[in-house]
Amino acid sequence: MSKHFPKSVNRLPLQIIIYLFVISGLATAAVTYYMTPKYTRVGYAPVQPVPYSHAKHVGELGIDCRYCHSNVEKSGFANLPTAQTCMNCHKIIKPNSPLLAVVRKSYETNTPVPWVQIHRVPDFVYFNHSVHIARGVSCVECHGQINQMEVVGEAKSLTMGFCLECHRDPAAHIRPRDQVTNLDWKASSEAEQRKMGEKFVHDWKVNPPQSCSGCHR
């Protein structure tokens, strides 16, 4: 037997196995942390063509969500306001502000303001806003504290797991229907939320779909 390999090579298989475990562990951790929607989506707050501040309009001035997002109670798609909706006030208020130039141009020429979409689910998921509003799910559950955001960012990951958390336990997340657009509302305590939620689930026969047909068509 010739001596081709030094003795240290005897430990090589064990080293390889250990390193493989370590590396795959690291890779898994890295992927799980950095490449899942919780990291990649949450915090996405792109610059919009118009520096619209929800904190000002909703938080300070108290405009209801539905004034602009008018179809959220009627259809699956919560619309963005047309320039006409903005001009309802801004014809009189700050009519010459340079920050609103894009809106004015859109209104005059009837071309759209190119808002960047923030909250997005894949095309094979069919989410319907109107039924959630009707069943007491508040905007804040999925969109976060919009009324405090200067620039809207994605507050939740909007993954299927996120949706199922609520679908499996609606009592923890629903509120009286007249408080749906009151983003600061909170139940007085967790127990109170649970009690109230259970009552709504019972009275309204809330049965959120947990099967694939609920969202995937």
Binding site: T40, R41, Y44, P46, N79, L80, P81, T82, A83, Q84, T85, S106, Y107, E108, T109, N110, T111, P112, V113, P114, W115, V116, Q117, R120
Partner: peptide
Amino acid sequence: RRPETRILPFGKS
């Protein structure tokens, strides 16, 4: 990070 998509509402309702 993510592909950009836009939402284009009407100018006049």
